[in-house]
Nucleic acid binder design. Structure first.
Lengths: 217, 217
DNA sequence: TTCATATTTTAGATAAGTCTAAATTTTTTA
DNA sequence: TAAAAAATTTAGACTTATCTAAAATATGAA
């Protein structure tokens, strides 16, 4: 088994690698709120365990073994988030911290039974896909609202920012997962966007919000 | 917040103090599978935090603050055990190790909602009482089968040994929580006991089993 | 009540994970 | 392309929790 710190590094590298491929020491340090020197120490350890590909000064990527562990942790995180929202009635902006702890509960059988108990959900409360017990999941291609054109419509299916303030704001605006929206206007000046909901309500969102709100077409 | 090690020491001291009042360094070391010198180090730290009463060579007891934390951990442990058995269909001999990890999930609100989700259960799968959110619980006076006389009857309500082999044995003999039994014979020679179940089945158990099986009269 | 034994504590080390400060390597820019 | 800047690594230190071995204290038996 791996330590809590090791698991957090693997998960972090996995997330950063989605955009970048190879991940830098400083990226990891920024993401984990730690120092680059601490990261270097840990990278050596993970490389010794054959969980990452690492050559000095060249950044890192996960090995197959490392990716498997990372996906396992993400599976646990998302299943526990689903549990907290669907069974214990937490809001989607309240569950991240708790799931950060719960994702390290080691038993595989526990998580598989939890998955079954909840009916094998495919997405967590933020729209992120939940890997199955073999680590497989298909990630639908989502686009930020900011990448759409006037009159395009789609379904809110994910967020790029998982922070409470952002999620609370979306909730207040009723811009939650599953809602269908149509782009009605794009303001050239500040790149803010006007949306129309199914109930014909019009909502203005800033460029920043439009960047962090993901749509499936 | 306290570290995982600190929480485990507090819980351990709480359990040992139930019989003894004051707990010795060696008792703790034996219970936690560690060395007496390690225990001494930790006792100093817990005393600095005012969680235990400690004077060198004199053993320890929990302060009110320490006891409150210990009971909180035990509440979490037992609620998670209940969840694992009642919701995820684990057997009573499978849940201890998992609950040992889950009891350290920090959120109080999570555990209170879990409690509510399950309908505020009063006892865990091994018959141990579950403290409420204020740390209150009433422990019924239970007697080991070995303390009963011929013809006495009662209901199986707890165990002293929580190990898998013991619990599996009881399960196989159908000596599980809630079953009513009557003492039909006590063998002088080896202190083994003959029991009759509600279905009039006769079961012989050894002195050791009789010592670890608890009855409410 | 004194001495042998058991218990407990202290002293000094170790491993994991972190830090700061300094050194090294890579990248950028002029 | 050489110097400056940025990124990364190394060196050495700190904390937590553990260990072994030795010293101190308590207990109990003669």
């Amino acid at each position: 088994m791996n330590t809590l710190a090791e698991e957090n590094y693997l998960k972090c590298i996995y997330h950063l690698a989605i955009d970048a491929g190879v991940v830098s020491t400083n990226q990891i340090a920024a993401s984990l709120n730690t120092r680059a020197s601490s990261v270097t120490d840990m990278l050596k350890k993970l490389a010794d365990k054959a969980l990452i590909n690492y050559t000095r000064y060249q950044g890192v990527s996960l090995t197959d073994a490392g990716e498997k562990i990372a996906i396992g942790i993400i599976r646990k995180h998302r299943l526990w988030e689903y549990f907290l929202v669907e069974k214990l009635n937490f809001k989607w902006d309240q569950v991240h911290e708790m799931a950060e702890e719960m994702e390290h509960i080691s038993s595989e059988e526990l998580i598989d039974r939890l998955d079954e108990f909840m009916g094998h959900p495919k997405h967590d409360p933020h729209g992120d896909p939940i890997p199955d017990c073999n680590g497989n999941f298909k990630s639908v291609e989502l686009k930020p609202v900011s990448a759409l054109a006037i009159n395009q419509c789609g379904v809110i299916s994910g967020v790029r920012d998982h922070s409470s303030p952002f999620l609370q704001y979306l909730e207040k605006q009723q811009l939650t997962i599953g809602k269908k929206v149509t782009i009605t206007d794009i303001i050239e000046y500040d790149h803010s966007v006007a949306l129309k909901t199914e109930t014909d309500k019009e909502i203005y969102i800033s460029r920043e919000v439009a960047n962090n709100l993901l749509i499936s077409l």
